[in-house]
Amino acid sequence: MTATRDVPPEEQARHAARMARKKAARDRMMETKTAEKGLVIVHTGPGKGKSSSGFGMIMRCIAHQMPCAVVQFIKGAWDTGERRLLTTHFADLCQFHAMGEGFTWETQDRSRDIAAAEAGWQTAQALIRDPSIRMVLLDEINIALRYGYLDVQAVLDFLATEKPPMTHVVLTGRGAPEALVAAADLVTEMAMVKHPFRAGVKAQAGVEF
């Protein structure tokens, strides 16, 4: 066991005073944050963790007994850990729709990619319109938007006019269009610092999928 350092009384007093000031400032700030609304949330950027973060939010919804749904636009053929967990253990709370046919360099057929994206978007619209579903994760939809498989403005118009007031919609994937970033309530950009793939390490279960 690591020994704990005895804190001198004067240092403890300074620390307690700093924390008291910080708590008071935090409490004042929180008093102004009273609104609730359904958010449009974007996870983008070249770094790893965009889909993982979205699925983390889905698991939070499940923990709160909030009905939710996932529509996958690209990784439809993958047997991912998230898909296996949600469909086998939480199907009563989370609908899962794998609509993609793989990455564009695998299908090599733009018409098929567009058709798959459009089918995924039709499914997504129906789920988002249902006010009983509190969160809809549109996994990798940003890629479909970036390649022009879906019309960005049509997606934005739908979210602005037809999304129920308390429904959260999470859109993941690198290269999120500027218009989507501007319209979203919460945007996180994942940065690439280091990745084992560059050192010849393949995607691994439990880390990548």
Rank of each mutant, 00 (worst) to 15 (best):
M59I: 09
R28W: 11
Q95N: 07
K202A: 14
A16V: 04
V155Y: 11
P9S: 07
V169G: 01
A124W: 03
T2S: 15
P131F: 06
R84S: 15
T172Y: 07
V71S: 02
P8I: 10
T2L: 13
K33M: 14
I62H: 01
L180K: 03
A3T: 14
A35R: 12
K194Q: 05
V187S: 08
T34E: 09
H195T: 02
R110N: 07
T188H: 13
K163E: 00
D92N: 13
A25K: 15
G206A: 04
C61M: 03
D27W: 08
A115E: 13
Q153Y: 15
L150V: 06
W78V: 15
M166G: 04
D79P: 12
P46E: 14
H43S: 13
M30F: 15
M19V: 08
A184P: 01
A182I: 01
D139T: 04
P196I: 06
E10C: 00
I141E: 13
A117T: 02
A3R: 14
G173E: 09
W78N: 12
A77I: 11
C61W: 00
P196Y: 08
A184M: 05
A191I: 12
I133A: 03
R112L: 11
K48E: 08
P177W: 06
R60I: 01
K22C: 13
L186H: 07
P8K: 13
A182Q: 09
F197D: 06
R14F: 07
N142K: 12
H97F: 08
R174Q: 09
G206D: 05
V70E: 03
S53L: 14
V71G: 00
K37C: 04
P67G: 06
F73Y: 06
E118N: 12
G148Q: 04
D113Q: 10
